[in-house]
């Protein structure tokens, strides 16, 4: 005879997602993309399909960078246009490619034009093959520092471009930038912990690719507390229900779940953004 399981416990977040498909609070997905990707077939990579999928589970803000900006040259304006068409849910990170300094300056000059949809910058150092500590990023990081903007950085354990020691160095160099460590320096959890503890409170771990991994969210919460962890899916890569399922399946408190899914983003951006 099975005992009462996670999904059956009355008045819990897990039960609400199981039965209703959503909870009584909004979700902020802080790490998404948009557009086709060379390496994968993605059936739902444009705005309408992504939004339909995200809204099913109660995503209130879907914060994305467009692949045409990260791998091409004109994607930020495409991202902005998508935001204009879907202002109730979409927010954008301005994609930065340090290998094109003139383009980077041009795109940053447009940042204010893209407000309020533009909420920060996105760096993809592993793909652009430029270390996060390289001077090629200085202009963009100075820009973010002056405005105290979030910078969502792709990070991964042992990466020579955005691994743990490199991220620790750069976040300490820019205490006014709000660093969102995409993938939480996946696999190098010691560095992820150091990045949170050895700074001025300007760093957040972002969970993309982690929910579902057994025991990892529990470990991160134990190390740094849930107040420094943000939810993300890489949508259109990962399913929102899989990712939320991974968060609510973790052995953490309901307060921790709320912190991760929306409260921390509320604290960073305010109630209306």
């Amino acid at each position: 005879m099975l005992k009462q399981c996670l999904w059956e416990k009355n008045n819990t977040i897990a039960q609400s997602f199981w039965q209703n498909g959503k909870a009584d609070f909004p979700i902020y997905d802080m790490h998404a993309h948009m557009g086709k990707h060379y390496a994968i077939y993605m059936a739902r990579c444009e705005a309408a399909d992504m939004i339909r999928h995200a809204e099913r589970i109660g995503v209130k803000r879907l914060c994305f960078s467009h692949y045409a900006a990260l791998y091409g040259t004109d994607g930020n304006e495409i991202a902005a246009e998508n935001c204009r068409q879907h202002p109730d849910i979409l927010r954008m990170y301005v994609g930065i490619n340090p290998n094109y300094p003139q383009l980077m300056r041009k795109e940053l000059a447009n940042f204010d034009k893209w407000r309020p949809y533009a909420i920060g910058l996105k760096f993809l150092a592993d793909y652009h093959k430029v270390k996060m500590t390289d001077p090629a990023y200085s202009y963009a990081l100075d820009f973010a520092s002056e405005r105290e903007l979030p910078v969502l950085c792709h990070t991964w354990g042992n990466s020579p471009f955005n691994g743990g020691p490199i991220m620790l160095e750069i976040i300490q160099r820019y205490p006014k930038v709000k660093f969102f460590l995409g993938h939480s320096i996946f696999g190098d959890w010691d560095s992820a912990e150091r990045c949170i503890k050895e700074n001025d409170g300007n760093v957040y771990l972002e969970l993309t690719a982690i929910p579902g991994e057994r025991g990892i969210i529990e470990d991160l919460v134990r190390r740094v507390g849930s107040e420094h962890i943000l939810y993300g899916t890489d949508l259109p890569w990962f399913d929102e229900y899989q990712a939320v399922g991974g968060v609510v399946s973790a052995d953490i408190s309901e307060d921790d779940v709320r912190n991760i899914l929306y409260r921390n983003a509320d604290n960073i951006f305010g109630k209306e953004w």
């Binding site: 996670l6 999904w7 897990a14 997602f17 199981w18 498909g21 099913r56 589970i57 929910p211 579902g212 991994e213 057994r214 025991g215 399913d239 229900y241 899989q242 990712a243 939320v244 399922g245 991974g246 609510v248 399946s249 973790a250």
Partner: peptide
């Protein structure tokens, strides 16, 4: 994929597929 993955994430994914 236990023990690498927990069993819950893909359950919710399927339930709301």
């Amino acid at each position: 994929g236990f023990p690498r993955y927990n069993q819950g994430a893909s359950m919710l994914q399927l339930k709301h597929s």
